Simulated scan of single mutants.
Amino acid sequence: MEPFLLVALAHFLALLSPGPDFFLIARSSIHAGWRIASGACLGIALANGLFIAMAFAGFTVLREGSTLFIGLQLAGAGYLLYIGQLFLRHAGKSDLAAHTSGRAVSGWWRGLGAGFLSGILNPKNALFYASLASMVASSSAAWKWACGAWMFSIVMLWDLLVAVAIGHPRLLRRFSRVLPWLERATGVMLMALAVALLVHLLPG
């Protein structure tokens, strides 16, 4: 239960910090409304779901304690440390107004395609989910399914919430004010997960 909660929390905190997917949804919502932007939300969620399935399926064929298993866990910890320090270093430097002023994707199906491409062509997504999967690699298949379903659902729900809320200037300004603290919290959480994984790998 504890690994699931840690992974779920780290995943949710990472969602709070804007990336390419966030800005695609924001532009679409501001210029075309949240209903059109929901297509991009679904496309992004499907891309994330594919990475989640690949990450968890890949770890199910690994034998715990093997060289490959340990190597993947070390790589996952290294990546979590890397993106954690990026969050800390760039906290407060995201300009939401600048990123949301571009041209929006028109049409629900075009939004779906653009969202899927945005998610699937981002190599950080694959590495991020592989890193999180390493945290629950020794858990039962049921827990892995639960964790994967949770992450897919949270991506979809969070993106829809962004699409609905981002069109309100007041909410956008408020989010911009708390964003630096969310980025710092995400960085600390991801780095803490990496350290916990490294400590777990130390010989007993």
Rank of each mutant, 00 (worst) to 15 (best):
T60Q: 15
G65L: 08
L72W: 11
L96H: 03
S134G: 15
W109H: 08
R89A: 12
Y129D: 06
Y82Q: 07
A75Q: 04
P123I: 03
A97N: 12
M135K: 03
H90E: 12
L96I: 12
A114S: 10
F56P: 10
S101A: 15
A126K: 08
R103H: 13
A130M: 14
A130N: 11
F69C: 08
F87C: 13
M54T: 14
L121T: 13
G76K: 02
Y129L: 15
A104S: 10
A130E: 09
M54V: 15
L80R: 00
G58N: 11
G113M: 06
Q73K: 15
K93H: 11
A57W: 13
A57F: 14
A97L: 12
A114Q: 05
A126H: 04
K93E: 10
I70F: 04
G78S: 03
A133I: 09
W108H: 06
S66Y: 04
L62Y: 09
A55R: 07
A91M: 00
L112I: 06
A97H: 12
R89W: 08
L62D: 02
G65V: 04
S94Q: 14
I70M: 13
F59N: 09
V61I: 15
A77W: 00
Y82D: 06
G111V: 06
A98N: 06
G65K: 04
L112E: 02
F87G: 03
L121M: 10
P123N: 03
M135G: 13
A77V: 01
A57R: 13
L72C: 11
